[in-house]
Nucleic acid binder design. Structure first.
Length: 545
RNA sequence: GCCCUCGUAGUUCAAUGGAUAGAACAAGUGCCUCCUAAGCAUUAGAUGCAGGUUCGAUUCCUGCCGAGGGCACCA
């Protein structure tokens, strides 16, 4: 872990600034891209130049003079490069010594403690039970699960929550669609409702109902809706389970009507004079809270709009005292959640601990054509189909390796064609190779039993690997701060690249027993990091491939 | 028309305001008597356009162009 060393250097910089009577500033201290510039680099002189009205190079020289007096330990050389960067070289011994640290920490190497003693709620997927999960839901599901893992890696106690509504208009149409298919099976006219669900699965459900309940059901029977919901929900849960995603809690929107939360919340807004009636509808006066337009809360039909239960639900989450509340929403919700936040704030709630993650939609391509996804029109590719076609790890990695802000194109033909050259295998292959080396070494009786000489690891490819290994905790923290799992994916990709390079240039098991032991140690440490990273991303760590 | 997100190599995507913009696929060339060639080495190839802020801009700001999503008494 580089952090203690970085702290030390930061402190030294602060001391140097003080003794030079320079103002203290936050500055960067990070590994430069080009290793010729050293192991860590700071821009402090560049930041001070304007204020001090001096050239950055001169400032850097003064700082370095001070640093040379007060900085001791692993820093072997401090240099200055144009336009005024201060570069620190760290001795090999520091990096070599970290191997033991990684081996000792093992499965907890890289874990942070930001969330110690805290709870987090991550709401994701939240698809209503109107049909199977699509590839689009897949992005949500995998993102939400990976974010949950990132939080757990910071020691948060995480509740994975699925919110659904089984009482709305869509569910009514679903029931009518099933009913229509049921009567169709009985040879009656098909009266599929306008906007009805057209998928094959509706027919399957109708068939099950016919088998289980006979042919005497009346139009409007509750069985259509209830059975459809049950079957579809089980299907959804199976799909998620197949991807390794398990929810701790399912919350039904209905709860907040039944327990009075919604009435209570409407009354409170009314007391605050934020509710009014117009044209037979009930409106929320968002305009008086800085928004450009008011929103309908209760339609003239008497049905509340989705904002009402959503707000009650978020209030419920706040009252459950989570330290962190995360919503994973598709881009279509981007405009909606601010209204929920506005209402919560109007009710006097602090919403600083709510983070809404918006991911952009996936464009599916098939045969070069874009597919518009609609559950209703059965114009979709199910998540199950995709997983069956290319495998869990490929699907998970695909969604986790890209920023959630990117509009991704998912070419189904390409995904199937190229599933055996998916980048995830590059990472897993590194893990499998290491596992093979270790079992090989065991067979040959080469073990280091905790004793090895780290100073033997001085090959360029060994040092490059080592210097990147120690940065794992940094990337775990970055992933937490940004809540973007791709930071981990990017890191693992680079780590694997450095490992494969090492593998091709440095033989682990050789006649030189001492060197073999040291290399076995670095390789074991690498495997620990890979496995930990895979763990966060939810992909498997194969022993062989 | 207004709001959100995006525009990087032939293609799909990376890049805490930092130094020489990275991968993968596709194209070209080498490397398995040696721990797994799902690998390594190597060639070629990119920041939509115009301004601005900055010592420094793919990154921040403004405008334009282009793509996706939203702007419902749908969720």
């Amino acid at each position: 872990m580089m952090t203690p060393l970085k702290e030390k250097i930061r402190n030294a910089i602060t001391l140097a600034l003080r003794s030079l009577s320079y103002p203290e500033k936050d500055c960067s201290l990070a590994p430069p891209k080009n290793i010729d510039f050293g192991d860590l680099s700071s821009n402090i002189a560049l930041l001070l130049a304007k204020e001090l009205k001096k050239s950055p190079m001169d400032i850097a020289k003064n700082i370095v003079n001070e640093l040379n007096n007060n900085l001791t330990g692993h820093t072997t050389n401090i240099s200055i490069t144009n336009p005024g960067f201060i570069n620190f070289e760290i001795d090999d011994h520091y990096f070599q010594s970290q191997i033991i640290h990684i081996l000792n920490k093992n499965q907890v190497y890289g874990k942070g403690d930001v969330g110690t003693g805290q709870t987090a709620n991550v709401e994701f997927v939240s698809a209503n039970p109107t049909g199977p999960l699509t590839v689009g839901h897949g992005r949500n599901a995998i993102l939400g699960d990976a974010v949950s893992n990132i939080l757990e890696w910071q020691d948060f106690k995480v509740t994975r929550e699925y919110y659904f509504n089984d009482a709305g208009r869509q569910m009514r149409i679903l029931a009518q669609s099933v009913e229509a298919r049921y009567f169709e099976l009985l040879g009656k006219d098909l009266k599929l409702p306008e906007d009805g669900y057209q998928g094959e699965y509706i027919k399957d459900i109708a068939q099950i109902i016919l088998d289980e309940n006979g042919k005497d059901l009346n139009s409007g029977s509750n069985i259509f809706k209830n059975k459809a919901e049950e079957i579809i929900f089980n299907d959804i849960k199976d799909s998620l389970k197949k991807l390794g995603i398990n929810f701790d809690q399912f919350t039904n929107e209905k709860t907040f009507y039944e327990n009075g939360d919604i009435d209570k919340f409407m009354n409170e807004l009314r007391t605050k004079n934020l509710i009014y009636e117009k044209e037979n509808a009930t409106w929320f006066k968002t305009s008086s809270l800085g928004k450009d337009q008011d929103r309908v809360y209760i339609k003239s039909s008497g049905e509340p709009t989705y904002r009402v239960p959503d707000t009650a639900y978020h209030r419920n989450k706040i009252k459950r005292n989570f330290d962190l509340i995360i919503d994973v929403f598709g881009a279509d919700h981007a405009d909606a959640y601010p209204d929920v936040i506005t209402a919560l704030e109007a009710l006097g709630h602090n919403t600083d601990h709510i983070r809404v993650l918006i991911y952009q939609f996936v464009t599916l391509l098939k045969g070069g054509e874009k597919i518009k996804m609609s559950t209703r029109k059965a114009d979709f590719v199910t998540l199950d189909d995709l997983v069956n076609e290319v495998g869990i790890d490929v699907v998970r990695y695909f969604f986790v390796m890209r920023s959630m802000n990117s509009h991704l194109d998912f070419d189904l033909d390409l995904a199937a064609d190229q599933s055996d050259q998916n980048p995830v295998y590059y990472l897993q292959y590194a893990h499998a190779r290491i596992s093979n080396i270790i079992s090989r070494a065991n067979d040959l009786g080469v073990t280091f039993e905790g004793v090895f000489d780290p100073s033997l690891l001085k090959h360029d490819d060994e040092m490059n690997l080592l210097k990147y290994m120690v940065r794992f905790p940094e990337f775990v923290d970055l992933a937490y701060e940004s809540l973007e799992p791709q930071n981990i994916a990017n890191y693992l990709q680079e780590l694997s690249a450095r490992f494969h390079k090492f593998y091709n240039h440095c033989r682990v098991i050789t006649d030189d027993i001492e060197l073999s032991r040291a290399r076995l140690a670095i390789v074991k440490a690498t495997r620990i990091i890979l496995a930990n990273g895979f763990n966060i991303l939810g992909i498997s760590a194969p022993e062989r491939m």
